[in-house]
């Protein structure tokens, strides 16, 4: 027997054995494996995200203006109830800084700054910003950057999956959280992911009942430079037109305007 035929025979047996094993999984076992994989992923997302959230709160402080915080929670919960991942609890909080910004950490922790609450002009703009941040969470933008490269796929055998224990993170979480903070506060997620969150955010806002163009109007005021106008904002306007996204009809604009002013008047 030649070396070549030995190698070929070994390979064929290995391939056949792997094929037989993959076929041995029943639909019920696959469903269980899918759920176990989802639970582990959610565990890891929340584990990383809540530690990042604690650091963000430690770094910038929590703004505890009750009417404003409660209003933020209602608008955020409305969007999350509509388009959020049902396996997550979304939390919304205000950071005590005059900078105009918003953040999302894995697992559903969403923050806006006090400066942003001053800068938004209506509920639809706030909903647009929150939709953008929820899109980052739903698409796992930060988590996929951070997670160890040993994620569990749905096709992985159930025995291997269940033997792995409750987490794929191990003792690496401290480093992952530090890397996440660097991405969150210094490097950013990158133009591609921001563009995706913008586009998904427009669709989320519309699905919740808000004018999707409100996010674009907000960005125009925050990013008035020519480069931004022709870049991110112009791209979003093209996307809005191409997708034919328009403001939903029938919304009680006066009620929305009144509660916006009432809730945020003490911030302004």
């Amino acid at each position: 027997m030649t070396l070549w035929s030995s190698i070929l025979r070994f390979t064929l047996f290995a391939v056949a054995a792997a094929g037989l094993l993959s076929c041995a999984t029943t639909p019920a076992e696959k469903a269980l494996a899918d759920r176990a994989a989802l639970a582990k992923e959610v565990n890891d997302e929340v584990a990383i995200g809540r530690q990042m959230a604690a650091k963000l709160l430690g770094h910038l402080g929590r703004y505890a203006n009750e009417p404003a915080v409660h209003y933020l929670e209602l608008v955020g919960a409305l969007v999350a109830a509509r388009v959020g991942r049902p396996e997550l609890s979304y939390r919304f909080a205000v950071l005590n800084t005059a900078d105009v910004n918003a953040y999302a950490t894995p697992g559903g922790y969403i923050f806006v700054t006090k400066g942003l609450l001053k800068a938004v002009r209506n509920e639809a703009e706030l909903a647009g910003v929150l939709s953008h941040e929820i899109a980052h969470v739903n698409e796992r933008h930060m988590y996929r950057e951070l997670r160890p490269k040993q994620d569990v796929g749905a096709e992985e055998s159930i025995v291997r999956l269940l033997s792995r224990g409750g987490s794929t993170l191990g003792g690496s979480i401290t480093k992952l959280v530090e890397a996440g903070m660097k991405t969150l506060l210094k490097d950013g997620l990158g133009a591609e992911k921001e563009k995706e969150a913008d586009e998904i955010g427009l669709m989320y806002a519309q699905a919740t009942g808000y004018a999707p163009s409100a996010l674009i109007e907000f960005l125009k005021r925050q990013r008035p430079t020519a480069k931004d106008r022709t870049g991110r904002v112009a791209g979003l306007e093209r996307y809005l037109a191409a997708q034919k996204l328009t403001a939903p009809k029938g919304v009680e604009a006066s009620i929305v305007a009144k509660r916006f002013e009432r809730s945020l008047s003490s911030v302004r």
Binding site: K55, L57, G58, V177, M181, K182
Partner: peptide, 15 residues
């Protein structure tokens, strides 16, 4: 941590 950001878990608990 090494990044210098201090965590505030009591604020997180309130959230």
């Amino acid at each position: 941590g090494a990044d210098g950001y201090k965590a505030d878990y009591s604020a997180l608990k309130k959230v």
